[in-house]
Design a protein around this nucleic acid. Structure first.
Lengths: 184, 184
DNA sequence: ATGCGTCGATACGCTTGCGTTCCATTCACG
DNA sequence: CGTGAATGGAACGCAAGCGTATCGACGCAT
């Protein structure tokens, strides 16, 4: 089993996915794109779902990571910059909304999406912990609301509205979010 | 040409759309669901795209409307409550993300989505005008950012995270948004 | 050299659905 | 009543793709 071919197949899947959406993925087209035969796909994965799940988990299409930058605003800025970098990627920009849409129609991909979401939210909790410890946020702030507020404006702008976001816009967004989180 | 049948066909399209996504819509299934023959669809619309565009425009899948409630916070709360009502609708919750995903893959539906988005944003501008006139917001606030902030947390929560939102949560969200808009 | 696993290419039977067309029936109107 | 429009149901030729299987070729390890 050739690992380089497995990688090529995964890459081809993402390209095809970004053009057709999950439902429209033709495994024949994926194989062709990878310069392989269809049997090579079936030797590795029993189904489209298994193939897609493996590919997503392997590449780790994840929005962003949180890190400790010394202050809430700096943490938020770093998060938004990382998220911006991920959403700038053409394939991510196309596959991410399709993942959500597909989940609404068929629950096949739901476990995968849930796993990704859970990881990110746990990291967000840790960032809130740090801000509380620094005295930047109230101890009993509404964490549900805070964790919805943080990624949503950037997601809305870049995915829903398909707009680019400058570094200055990220900075302003972080400042607005700090104000919002203080009111949570 | 029976108008009641046209209506039934549109309704059937939405049901099918919510189950299969746009790509997976089978006009045969739509016709069957509406208790009609396929020819009835082709007599009215030349293609799936024309059918879908007509249906969306006729029903007006729109997120929400803005109204003057006397203060920025009240305006925002009213907006969020209206948007919440729309997003509670099962078909909307499924078709909306699919519209976005489909737009990313194929530009067929882009003009339709742009029209919907433009209308809503213009109304958002008027709400900001009112808040500025009342002295609630700075004259030169970052309107781009403000108009991204307003709908995004609710969209994120209800569509991306598939979570319900209580009236109390809407109120808290409105308050956080006021704080954010003041920092814009 | 030999054996094994994997490869791409292809064929196969099957399914689904498209867009078009047809037909007997129904309905509304003059 | 006669006529024309529209109807649901179905047939048609065509296309695409699925999942399975096969075959000769290739690369690698022994």
């Amino acid at each position: 089993m050739r690992p380089d071919l497995t990688t090529a197949l995964r890459r081809a899947l993402f390209e095809e996915w970004s053009q057709t959406g999950y439902v429209g993925i033709s495994l024949e087209s994926v194989a062709l794109r990878a310069g392989a035969g269809k049997a090579a796909i079936y030797r590795r994965w029993p189904s489209k779902l298994a193939f897609a799940s493996d590919a997503i988990e392997t590449v780790g299409v994840d929005l962003a990571a949180f890190s400790d930058c010394g202050s809430l605003e700096a943490d938020l800025t770093a998060f938004l910059l990382t998220m911006r970098r991920a959403l700038r990627h053409r394939l991510v920009r196309r596959i991410l909304p399709d993942l959500l849409a597909e989940r609404a129609c068929s629950r096949d991909l739901a476990p995968l999406i849930d796993r990704l979401a859970r990881r990110r939210r746990a990291e967000g909790e840790r960032m809130l912990d740090r801000a509380v410890a620094r005295g930047e946020l109230r101890t009993h702030l509404d964490r549900e609301l805070a964790l919805d507020l943080i990624p949503s404006p950037l997601y809305w702008r870049m995915i829903v509205r398909e707009r680019a976001t400058t570094r200055a816009e990220v900075d302003r967004q972080a400042r607005a979010l700090v104000a919002a989180l203080r009111a949570c």
